[in-house]
Nucleic acid binder design. Structure first.
Lengths: 159, 159
DNA sequence: TTTGACAGTTCAATTTTAGAACTGTATGAA
DNA sequence: TTCATACAGTTCTAAAATTGAACTGTCAAA
């Protein structure tokens, strides 16, 4: 998660990517849609290209111009986008309602995204998931502070 | 999406929330697990409580101490977390492999999260989804530039 | 009496971001 | 030919956010 956040974890990158999913491709398009400063936009686009999320493709030669297109790696961010949108739709809408509705082409209905288990297909919730260290586990996820005398912790009074 | 990003869209908030899901509850716990500066941590926790993502609950009286617990609104962030982790697992792992594996209690298997359509249950991908303006739609999502003379931009001279 | 856990707060020094103008190529209009 | 505009950046300064480190304060145990 930390590595993902290293890619998309700032105020603007996700909004830029949202515009990509909404088919914006060019510098001015992003800038005017978002109101981001040109400086930061250039910075972020460069970073996303470096990280392989966007591809920079020339679309005219005279004054060299490029479009920014999602790579597969970028397209794979879609579930993150949908999860963010859905949480906002659930917890952050005002009285006017949702800004956007989503229609699923396959079934033709307006839908919400649901996250399910790849094995049994049941919807997921935090309580039903148990985490195990994997092969790339960190050495010390958390430094234990009450180390040596781990016991003396009868500090509680209220419960 | 912008509103969701307003809540969790910075470098540290998502990591703090990750620790919450991993059952960290106290100031020192977050601080030592993440290495975040105490100043920012205090700031972020306050913000999350204000926004209703965490609840601040006293666990001892003597020197007043509190724990930070996920509210339902916070728990609902779980799909976002899983989506972030899964993208990282897919595109950002090193040769050592995943740091964490997830087991679904319901079915007992190690799983990956999959995002599906709430109506037909099929997995979602960006191309199969069409967006429509909803009741809370923004007036002008994007100003068209190559229009006519959209605006006589008052180009000022340098000093 | 002293030390240490815990949960912050304060403050100077960096780093980022915002805001605005400026650079440069090319096209169409006057 | 000259001027205005589209487009994609770059450059600069001021303002905001973040870091790093030390400091405050309450209580418990040594």
């Amino acid at each position: 998660m930390a590595r993902t956040i290293g890619v998309i974890g700032d105020r603007w990158t996700l909004l830029i990517l949202r515009e990509c999913f909404l088919r914006t491709r060019r510098f001015e398009g992003f800038q005017s849609a978002l109101g981001i400063t040109r400086h930061l936009l250039a910075e972020r686009l460069k970073k996303l290209v470096r990280q392989g999320v966007l591809r920079r493709i020339p679309y005219q030669e005279s004054p060299k111009r490029h479009e920014y297109i999602l790579t597969q790696k970028g397209l794979d961010l879609y579930p993150i986008m949908m999860a963010l949108v859905h949480w906002g739709d659930t917890h952050m809408v005002d009285e006017r309602g949702r800004p956007l509705l989503h229609e699923h082409r396959k079934c033709g209905k307006m839908f919400d995204p649901v996250m399910v288990c790849s094995e049994c297909g049941e919807p997921l919730s935090a309580r039903e998931v148990h985490v195990h260290p994997g092969p790339g586990a960190r050495p010390a996820p958390e430094r234990v502070l009450l180390d040596k005398k781990a016991k003396p912790k009868p500090r509680k009074k209220a419960a």
